[in-house]
Nucleic acid binder design. Structure first.
Length: 579
RNA sequence: GCCCACGUAGCUCAGUAGGUAGAGCACAUUCUUGGUAAGAAUGAGGUCAUGGGUUCGAAUCCCAUCGUGGGCUCCA
């Protein structure tokens, strides 16, 4: 079999799918049908919504087309001809009209189907394998992604060179479902959301909250070590604050309606920065006290459109691990490098070592002097290069108020999640009149950098759950050890063991129910508790526990003290993979 | 917000000619005291998302609302 790129395979499959749809709905209007990272799709304008049965029928027709081995035939046509050929296809006409005048217009035919297409394609439909594609789902999609334009029906599918590769892909989709944080959040009793109490608002259950407090404590410790101070600020602020910051002008659609207190309008905060600036401005500042690094686990509320809410990953109330670094121009390179290192180390400790960066530069419309932008950009770029972080440049992708680096981390399944952002702000220091006195005795405008490393604790927790599939490293597992007495007569010794583990600082639970040992182990396994400690006659006699790991590994009996020593060592080292 | 689908016990789900709801798991009680992933019996538990409508009668049909899920410029 000849070798085609996935792109060719997928794009060809999308044509074959369109052909099938045309046979099913002769009146269908066709929009676009590109190959994408995970497969392909095609957008159609159809007389009625597609059903799952339609997908089956489309699949069947596609198989027919593949078996018929229709050759793909390329033709180049003049613009006028193209306009005539697609006279009854309004979307195609729009595409043709938007093509630059010098562009060669090509069409591809196979069987009875013809499509405007740049190509390339496989040589005939038989180059696709009938058993290696799958239509996955349908969805609504706006023509050209514009919500003011018609909603089309999109069919997603995928195809691979071989059946096995398709199977691997579908297995991976299943694995993603198994790891879904919403599912694990329920199964492991970590968190919940309540429609009746407000969508997009997270309730942390005892076990989820336990993980959170451990990570927060760790975060605070690291921040103090890293030269940060930690702040607490209010949740609401008078409209003056948001007018001054500019949020009411630029961000009001993300903010909740004001509440009136006395005669004044107050807004719940969508960001922490104005509050930190208020603290900065409580005093005259000298260059001698800079840099200031002020961090806060600040809970903010932002309006997100109902259609985009998704478990912990997209919510309306969340806690940012926010910080603002206020420094002099001379300090920014060191500070940026420091933040980047700090962030990479934090990610490493949490078990994420795969990081890529996106550097966003000055957009057309921007505030702040160009020299400042330049200096900021240089510091960002330099830091990435010193730390050897692979990065892509998003030219003009910065916010109007400053350039930034976003870090995306890859999880255990290789998915990228945008978490960290390190962002200059040339807007708010200006608006709030932030100044410091330099060595020259003059007032200067400091640089201010916003940064959130984990991003939001809610979203981070969602990613964390999926990354570890709920099997958290022992150092932040909500329950580290489960004591399992075999029979009631072992409970007394088990109680002792429980108390000793607890005294050693371990988070331990005991299952003294009347379940059989096997059932207790099963429960421990399902709860993904790192250590299960079985206690029967032999252990009670020898002051030992029989250690079973959640990896199904059975370490056998060891003295209680030996287990404690082992566990404490692994936990205090914050090892992410060894149990 | 928009399109489509969905919303039945804590969870996963069954319940199509519309005739006053069912399973498994979980939970409770009792029996069982068992060596590395489910011992057994009994029991409790639902105004079938909410509000309207059609009907003698609605979980089942229609409408609205709320919520959930898959998506919504990887450009011929």
């Amino acid at each position: 079999m000849s070798t085609y790129s996935l792109e060719e395979l997928r794009h060809s499959a999308s044509h074959v799918m369109a052909e099938a749809v045309q046979r099913l709905f002769p009146e269908a209007k066709f929009a676009i049908g590109p190959a994408i990272e995970s497969g392909f799709y095609y957008d159609f304008d159809l007389p009625r919504p597609l059903t799952p049965e339609d997908l089956e029928e489309i699949s069947r027709l596609m198989q027919e087309s593949i078996k018929a081995r229709h050759p793909f035939i390329r033709e180049e046509v003049l613009r006028q001809e193209a306009l005539q050929m697609f006279a009854d296809q309004p979307y195609k006409l729009e595409l043709i009209r938007d093509l630059p005048p010098e562009e060669t217009i090509s069409i591809y035919r196979h069987g009875d189907f013809m499509d405007l297409c740049r190509g390339p394609h496989v040589s005939n439909t038989g180059d696709l394998r009938w058993d290696s594609f799958a239509l996955l789902n349908t969805a609504g999609a706006y023509w050209r992604g514009d919500e003011k334009r018609p909603m089309l029906q999109r069919v997603y599918g995928t195809i691979f060179p071989s059946k096995q590769e398709l199977k691997d892909y579908l297995d991976r989709l299943e694995e993603i479902q198994r790891r879904d944080h919403r599912r694990l959040g329920r199964e492991l009793d970590l968190f919940s959301l309540h429609e009746e109490a407000g969508p997009g608002l997270v309730y942390w259950h005892p076990k989820g909250a336990r993980v959170r407090t451990i990570i927060e404590d760790f975060w605070r410790m690291r921040h103090y070590e890293g030269g940060y101070d930690i702040l607490y600020t209010p949740h609401i602020g008078r409209s003056w604050l948001w007018e001054t910051s500019g949020h009411l002008d630029f961000y009001s659609e993300g903010m909740y309606a004001p509440m009136q207190i006395d005669e004044e309008q107050y807004y719940i905060k969508p960001m922490n920065c104005p509050f930190h600036i208020m603290i900065y401005n409580t005093d005259v500042r000298s260059y001698r006290e800079l840099p200031l690094r002020w961090a806060e686990l600040g809970t903010v509320y932002r309006y997100e459109r109902s259609g985009v809410l998704h478990g912990l990953l997209r919510v309306r109330g969340f806690t940012q691990d926010d910080a603002h670094i206020i420094c002099t121009p001379e300090q920014i390179e060191d500070e940026i490098l420091g933040v980047l290192r700090f962030s990479l180390r934090l990610w490493h400790d949490l078990g994420f070592d795969n990081v890529v960066a996106y550097l966003a530069t000055r957009p057309e419309k921007a505030v702040g002097e160009p020299e400042r932008w330049e200096q900021a950009l240089v510091s960002l770029r330099k830091a990435l290069e010193i730390e050897n972080v692979p990065y892509e440049v998003d030219e003009g992708g910065g916010a109007f108020y400053g350039p930034k680096i976003d870090l995306k981390i890859k999880d255990a399944l290789g998915r990228e999640w945008q978490m960290t952002t390190i962002q200059f702000d040339f807007n708010e220091p200006e608006r709030f009149g932030m100044v410091y006195t330099g060595p020259d005795g003059q007032e200067h405008r400091p640089y201010m950098v916003h940064r959130a490393l984990l991003g939001s604790l809610e979203r981070f927790f969602g990613v964390l759950i999926e990354h570890y599939a709920g099997a958290f490293p022992a150092w932040f597992a909500p329950v580290q050890a489960l004591v399992i007495p075999i029979a009631d007569r072992h409970i007394e010794f088990a109680d002792q063991v429980f108390a000793r583990l607890k005294a050693a600082g371990l988070r331990v639970e005991m299952d003294s129910s009347s379940d059989r040992m096997n059932a207790k182990i099963r429960k421990g396994q399902l709860a993904k508790i790192p250590y299960m400690l079985v206690i029967g006659d032999r252990e009670a006699e020898s002051d030992s526990v029989s250690v079973r790991l959640r990896t199904n590994e059975n370490l056998g009996a060891m003295p209680v003290e030996a287990f404690i020593a082992r566990a404490v060592e692994i936990i205090t080292a914050r090892e992410n993979y060894r149990l």
